[in-house]
């Protein structure tokens, strides 16, 4: 496969770049700091064995006694930066420097070039997510003095896979802008603007749209329960357009077996036994719609990037 030299070069470039240690440090330090605070808060009170198992997982997601700013929170926040930083200039920088012209004047297909870049980027993301998750989990075990159960370990592995997918989605967005825009500054700004929009402002927009469509404000000050439910369900559905919502849902469900729904309501009858934590299969089933939406988003954006690159007019920037 002629993409191998490109993969090798890209991986070497990423690993030797100044960006790489900064990105790893960003994820790792925030993860370690929040874990340490979480462990301290957990160890303050006595715990039953079942609580201990759940508490270890909660160290990664926050809530239930651990600090709000958790490892999963920081991946949700900084993961896009990692993905964008690895891809925002991968195509347009090579176009501007003339190296893309040089590469493509050799007997190599265009798809090998972009696939080489994608594979290299994904390998780096895999390295960052799994190594930082492993280090944070190891640190938690060391400080807390206890570790996850086998099922808990699998939950953490699935969480790492979800983090990989989430960062990869942002990698593909950065790549798309790198193909679309000739200037690296434009692609960087466009990627960051989209990240800020989808991670912060989109929730405000989702709120306004949901309020308008559900008509909740026309019933003010005492709207009927049906309007309230419609409003919350709409807001929740719209906010799922943001990858951060999808990622947070999957991370929370995987790392907190007590979560029984990603929606607002859980139907429960009083004569049923008290709810037990979900097993891994049930949590997976619950997280699956959001997880598959992340996969779909990643594949769609990546496909667009590849198609645009294959159809792009390769011209020297100086001609």
């Amino acid at each position: 496969m002629r993409a191998t030299p490109i993969i090798r070069k890209e991986v070497a470039d990423h690993l030797s770049s100044k960006r790489f240690p900064l990105l790893v440090a960003l994820i790792l330090l925030s993860g370690l700091a929040t874990s340490y605070l979480g462990v301290q808060s957990i160890l303050q009170g006595p715990m039953r064995e079942t609580e201990q198992t759940l508490a270890f997982l909660r160290l990664l997601t926050g809530g239930g006694g651990s600090p709000t700013l958790s490892f999963a929170y920081f991946i949700g926040l900084f993961g896009p930066i990692v993905g964008i930083a690895l891809s925002f200039d991968s195509i347009n920088r090579e176009m501007a420097s003339g190296s893309m012209l040089k590469i493509l004047s050799n007997p190599i297909y265009r798809d090998s070039v972009i696939l080489g870049k994608i594979i290299a980027g994904l390998l780096i993301i895999l390295l960052i997510t799994f190594s930082s998750t492993g280090i944070v989990v190891g640190f938690n075990m060391l400080v807390a003095g206890f570790g996850p159960t086998i099922e808990g370990a699998f939950r953490i592995i699935y969480f790492a896979i979800t983090s990989f997918l989430y960062i990869s989605l942002w990698f593909s967005i950065g790549l798309l802008f790198s193909v679309l825009f000739r200037r690296t500054t434009t692609s960087a700004l466009a990627s960051i603007a989209l990240w800020v929009f989808l991670s912060i402002f989109f929730y405000l927009i989702a709120d306004v749209i949901a309020a308008e469509i559900s008509g909740i404000r026309y019933y003010f000050p005492s709207p009927p329960i049906t309007a309230i439910i419609a409003y919350y369900e709409l807001r929740s559905a719209i906010s799922r357009i943001s990858p951060l919502t999808l990622y947070t849902e999957v991370a929370n469900v995987l790392l907190n077996p007590e979560i029984r729904t990603t929606g607002l309501f859980y139907v429960y009858a009083p004569n049923l036994p008290s709810p037990q934590p979900l097993n891994l299969d049930m949590s997976m089933a619950l997280a699956w719609p959001s997880f598959s939406a992340l996969i779909a988003g990643f594949i769609i954006v990546l496909t667009f990037s590849i198609l645009l690159f294959l159809r792009a007019e390769i011209r020297p920037s100086w001609a």
Partner: peptide
């Protein structure tokens, strides 16, 4: 090309190795 498109952060030999691998 008019602008050679070589990688400035690689040595002359490394640049040629990369192109040799592509070919």
């Amino acid at each position: 090309p008019e602008v050679p498109g070589l990688y400035d952060d690689l040595t002359a030999r490394e640049n040629l190795v990369f192109t040799a691998e592509l070919n």
